[in-house]
């Protein structure tokens, strides 16, 4: 396009771009820089060092290998949440895209998204109520006579974290899959049926591969933010359900070791980024 186009476009996009640069790129840079510093109580030592990384990654003494345990657990939990969310969401996205009349689709999407926008803290807390010792699930099971005494393991476990997060991110997974399904040309499916494929095989050979970009987007959009949640693990996770974000948060808060917190944040980001990248590369043949 012409010169005028480019300069006008840049002039217009400059404010949001500069804002994102100032509040995202620069702060992220600051996190990385800070992770090479050290802090002793309140004095910040700005001599660049890899000490924090050494402690987190190799020192067996530091908080009983807590960072590594939490990192592995966070990735595992986030992975489980992602798998559950996407698997559970797919049929719903499929239903809305294929079996709901066009004029009612946006109403369905609206209903699906509503819970996502309502107070996050309160929603997480509600799961605590549900899974509690004398919560909804236990009381129901007791009343049905399936159990004799309340199961305490529901709450304060990694499973509780997975359930709560899966519930929290459900709409986030439905939307990208729905969008991908909407993009599929309906005559394509008719063509497949016409060529003698059954409904199930048409789904497996045409619909599913064509919706993979949406599935991949859903996976990323759930997996990445999940790692950074510290509310859910704190409220329903118990000691065995804590995640890396809790550790990061406590470094900035109670422990007041910002450089260590920055290091943990960098490591968490790097792990998530690496896993996401590998995932994207591994699924490339379906998404291109």
């Amino acid at each position: 396009m012409g010169h005028g186009e480019t300069s006008k476009g840049w002039a217009l996009i400059a404010p949001p771009a500069l804002y994102a640069l100032a509040l995202l790129a620069l702060p992220l840079g600051a996190v990385v820089v800070l992770s090479f510093f050290t802090q002793d109580f309140l004095t910040l030592d700005t001599t660049p060092t890899l000490e924090n990384y050494r402690i987190v990654l190799t020192d067996p003494g530091f908080a009983g290998q807590l960072p590594r345990t939490l990192l592995v657990r966070s990735v595992t939990i986030a992975g489980l949440v992602t798998v559950c969310t996407v698997l559970l969401a797919y049929p719903v996205a499929y239903y809305v895209s294929f079996h709901v009349a066009p004029e009612r689709k946006s109403l369905w999407l609206f209903l699906i998204t509503i819970p996502f926008w309502t107070s996050y803290l309160v929603r997480v807390f509600l799961w605590k109520v549900i899974l509690n010792f004398d919560g909804v699930v236990n009381r129901t099971l007791l009343n049905l006579g399936w159990i004799d005494e309340p199961i305490r393991a529901f709450l304060y476990s990694p499973a509780a974290v997975v359930i709560t997060l899966t519930h929290a991110f459900a709409p986030f997974a439905i939307l990208p899959i729905f969008v991908a399904l909407e993009k599929i040309d309906r005559p394509l499916l008719e063509a497949s049926r016409d060529l003698g494929e059954g409904t199930l095989r048409t789904f497996a050979r045409v619909t599913l591969p064509l919706s993979m970009p949406g599935v991949v987007a859903a996976v990323l959009i759930v997996f990445i933010p999940t790692i950074g949640d510290y509310v859910t693990p704190r409220l329903v996770g118990g000691p065995d359900g804590l995640m890396i974000a809790n550790l990061i948060q406590s470094q900035f808060g109670r422990l007041s070791n910002a450089p260590m917190g920055a290091t943990l944040a960098v490591i968490a980001m790097a792990s998530v980024g690496l896993i996401s990248l590998l995932f994207v590369l591994a699924t490339r043949r379906w998404t291109r």
């Binding site: 396009m1 476009g9 996009i13 990445i224 920055a262 968490a268």
Partner: peptide, 29 residues
Amino acid sequence: RYAFRGQGAVMGMIMVPLVLPEIIVGVSV
């Protein structure tokens, strides 16, 4: 409205907070 060089990258940067873990935003700010 406009098509210009680097548009995709800039829009990407503006949209990144959508997927960034919120704790990272909080900590970095």
